[in-house]
Design a protein around this nucleic acid. Sequence first.
DNA 1: TTGTAGGCGTTATCAA
DNA 2: TTGATAACGCCTACAA
Lengths: 345, 345
Amino acid sequence: MLRLAPNDTVTIKDVAKAARVSPGTVSNTLTGGRPVSDATRRRVEKAVKRLGYSPNMVARSLVNRRSHTLGVVTSGLELFGPSHTLLGIERQANECGYSLLLNLIHDPFDANVLPAVTALTARRVDGLIWAVPEIGTNRSWVTRPLLSRLPATVFLSMGRRPQVRGVSIDNRGGARIAVQHLLDRGRRVIGLVAGPLAWWEARERRAGWREALALAGRDTSPTLVAEGDWSAASGERGLRDLLARRPDVDAVFVSNDQMALGVLRAARALGRSVPGALAVVGFDNIPEAAYFTPSLTTMSHALVELGRFAVKSLLHAIEGTRSDGAAERAEAEQLRPILHVRESS
Amino acid sequence: MLRLAPNDTVTIKDVAKAARVSPGTVSNTLTGGRPVSDATRRRVEKAVKRLGYSPNMVARSLVNRRSHTLGVVTSGLELFGPSHTLLGIERQANECGYSLLLNLIHDPFDANVLPAVTALTARRVDGLIWAVPEIGTNRSWVTRPLLSRLPATVFLSMGRRPQVRGVSIDNRGGARIAVQHLLDRGRRVIGLVAGPLAWWEARERRAGWREALALAGRDTSPTLVAEGDWSAASGERGLRDLLARRPDVDAVFVSNDQMALGVLRAARALGRSVPGALAVVGFDNIPEAAYFTPSLTTMSHALVELGRFAVKSLLHAIEGTRSDGAAERAEAEQLRPILHVRESS
DNA sequence: TTGTAGGCGTTATCAA
DNA sequence: TTGATAACGCCTACAA
C-alpha cells in the first residue's frame, strides 16, 4: 500500500468491509445496477448511513465516462435576459440530476472561445449550453469541424443554422406585436430605438418593426431608426437624435426596457407628453417597468422557459431519449413574447 | 484489454506512444512535476499538438484529490445583488484557475440545504461559497459539527460568527451614510422603508438608520418604519402606510432602489414633491436609478469586489497561502458603500 | 533524466 | 445472488 496522505474519506471499500460484502455489491445496491438480496441491501444501507458514506462522483465519472454535468458559457449576467435564462437552465438541469459548470465570457465580442471551451471539455461535461449572445463575428467559430470536437451543444439566441441545435425566443414576432399595438392605437409614424445592431437579437427586433410597418404600408426609412447600446443613457440619446431628424414621430418601439426608461426621461425633458404626444413600447418587461413614469407598455418573454427548453433539448441529445414533437411545439409556442399594455401607450 | 466502448478520446498513453516516451514523462512535461530534457519536452509538445490531446481533469482530480473546482450556492439570481456577486466570484475563480459548480436554492427560507451540499461535495469541490442571503433561520444548520464535514467554506452576507469565514459589505455603515446625508440636507423627520426584516441585510440597514438618527438625537420610533419585500410594489405601499401614520415625515431612507422606485411613484400620486416635500435615498445604485424621475440618490456597493474577496479568502484557506493583512484591510475598505447624490435629495 | 508499477474510488465483466 | 478482477486516465514513488 502506497498512500500519499492519510485518507480520511470513507470509500466504497470501507462500506463493503463494514457490511461484509464486496465493493461491487455495495455499488450495485446503491446504483441498482443489478439485483441484490434484501438482506444484504439492508446491511449495506445501514453501513452507508453509519459511516456517512457518499459516493465519489469524480471516480464515478471517470469509469462511466459521464459526468452528469453540463457546461454553461454565458455573458452579461448582470443583465435581465442572461440571468433569467441561467435561472431556467439551472432549474431544469437540477431537476434532471445534472450539475452546472459555469463559465463567463467577459468580452462577448471576442470570438476566441477556446479557453472557455477547453476548461469545460477538459472536465468532461456531458453537454454544452452556449448562451453568449450572438454579436458581430463572435460565432464564427461555430463550424462543422470544430463542433464535432465538442460534446452535444445547444446555442441560445441564434439564427437558424443547419446542423446546429439552437433555441431562442421569437424576437421578430415580439417586435411585430409591439409595433402592431402602436398601429392599433392609431399611431402613424413609428420610430425605433434599436439595440446595438451588431447583436443578432437587436437585428431581429428591428426586422419585426420593419415587417409590421411594411405590412401596414408605413414608413420604414432609416431616419426612423436610432441605435442604442441597451442602456438607459443610450435610450435618452436615441430619442433626442430621432426627434431631431423626425419631429413627426408619434410613437417609438424601444428594443429593451432600460432604453425605454431613457426614452421616457428624454420625452419629459423635451416636453413631449407620453402617451399623448408620443406612445412608447419597450421589450423585456423588467419588474420595474410597471413603476416607470408613466408605467411602461412592454413585451414579456419566457426567459426561464427558454433556459429550461435548452436543457431539455440538450439532454434529449445526450440521453438519446425519444423526442416528443408535440411537446416541443408546445414549448416553442411559449417562447412567443406577450404584450403588456400600460400607461405609456 | 477490456474495453467497454470504442474509445476515441486521446489519452496520455497515446501521446507517450507518439513521442516515444513513457506516460510519466508526458505527465511531467505537462505539469512540470519534475524536470524533463528539452529534447523530449519538444517531442512531447509536438505530439500533444498533433493529437489534440487535452488532459482529462476528471482523472487528474481523482488522483490528486483536488478538483480545482469551487461550489457556489446562491439564490435570487434575478436580483441585482446576487447576480453581481456571482460575477465577481466567477472572475476571481477563473483568474485563479478554478471552475465553478453552480447550485441555486429556489426557496431561500428553506434551511434544508442537504441536497445542494451533497451535490457539490460528492463532486469533490475544493471549497464552498455560500451566497444564499441569511433569512430567518435558514442558517441554523451552520454549526461546528456540520461545518467540519464540509470543505473550506465562506459565507456571504452574514453577521460575524466565531469560527466561520464570512464576508459582506458594510450594510450598516452604508445606511448611516445615507441617513447622515439626509440630516445634512436639513431633514428632520426621516422615515425608513425597510427590506423584509427576516433578512439579516435588511436588519443591518435598519440598524444603520437608527444609529445615525440616535446620534443626532432624532426620532427613531417604530412608527417611522415600514417593512417591504424589496419590490417596487411594496415600496409604494410602504410610503403610503408611512405617511398615513406620520404625515410629518420629510425624508425617507429606502433599503433598495426597486422599493425607492415605488416610493417615488407613491409620492407623486400623493402630491408630495420630491425632493421638495420629501427627500428620498435608496440603496444599491442599480443602473436605472440615475434615470428615475427624479433621478435617485442612492448608495453603491462593490458587489463584484465582494465576490472576488470571497474567492480570495477561500483560496487562501484551501491553498494555505500566506495572508496579507494589509491587502485584506484594503479589500474590506472597498466594501464600504458610497453615496451618489442625485435629484431625489 | 527516464521508465515501471501501483493506486486514486468506482463500475463492469467474468466466474462461481 | 455474489466475489474477484480489470479497467477508467492520470500522477508519483521507486528503481534504473
